[in-house]
Design a protein around this nucleic acid. Structure first.
Lengths: 133, 133
DNA sequence: CTAGTTGCAAAGAGTTTGCATGGCG
DNA sequence: CGCCATGCAAACTCTTTGCAACTAG
């Protein structure tokens, strides 16, 4: 699958890379690139990029759409994401916390974590500041 | 919303309670109770129960449907869920691991975790046993 | 050339909503 | 009794698929 490197493919990859620390929905991508890429090409390329490991698909909290984020050749690869339910911003969990969690789960429950697919939800420091709750 | 305690409401609550440690999809509930509750009543009651905090709605990995799990007055309340991508079984992360993670995130990133909404994905001990990967 | 890709539109899956009927309190 | 909740079906949203035309290699 996806043997040719087409223009559309490149456009989608570049778009994702330009927003590498965010979770972008397919809809957003399709809308942003609608002049040069069709909706189906967006979905098909995202699926292909996911298979290649260049992109990770994650479920978004309380949203029926999926989020996609660039995994490139590095970075996000083994990162757990943590998303603020107030502002929607998504960050990485520090690698020290991540590896401690990973080890604890492996040791105590025999669970091998798929870090890239995990999403934690909460309220970030900034949003906790003045806001309620 | 949901001022009356109707028969359907009770049936749905009881069904969820009977499967309190699982993530059940709305479809599953609707199918199981189709003789006594309509699909729309299932969705409406789930939404209401969620608002009341009796039920938590979570995104299921790679699935476009949502999972619902009973939060009752206790149990699952502050539990992070961990789901096996192979067998689909969902368990709770032990409270010691959970609270360590929670403290670490609070301390290192100022993030206050919404435990009930978090989902971790990986492969459980049983599935890792003989299977590949 | 020729198999892989694209774009379009139609089909699917899950969820939500409008409206008339029926039931809780 | 009045308002709320139910049931049904139709509407919606996001995603997938069939198919003919196009294009990268």
């Amino acid at each position: 699958m996806q043997k040719y490197f087409t223009e559309q493919r490149r456009i989608i990859s570049e778009y994702l890379e330009s927003r590498k620390d965010e979770c972008v929905t397919a809809q957003e991508i399709a809308a942003a690139l609608c002049l040069s890429v069709s909706k189906s090409a967006v979905y098909r390329n995202l699926a292909a990029l996911e298979k290649e490991g260049k992109v990770v698909r994650v479920s978004l909290a309380g949203d029926r759409a999926f989020g996609y984020r660039y995994a490139g050749s590095h970075a996000c690869a083994g990162k757990i994401h943590i998303s603020c339910v107030k502002c929607g911003r998504t960050e990485h969990v520090s690698s020290s916390v991540t590896s401690r969690l990973e080890r604890a789960l492996a040791a105590e429950e025999g669970f091998s974590l798929r870090k890239g697919e995990c999403m934690l939800y909460g309220v970030c420091k900034a949003c906790r500041g003045g806001a309620s709750k």
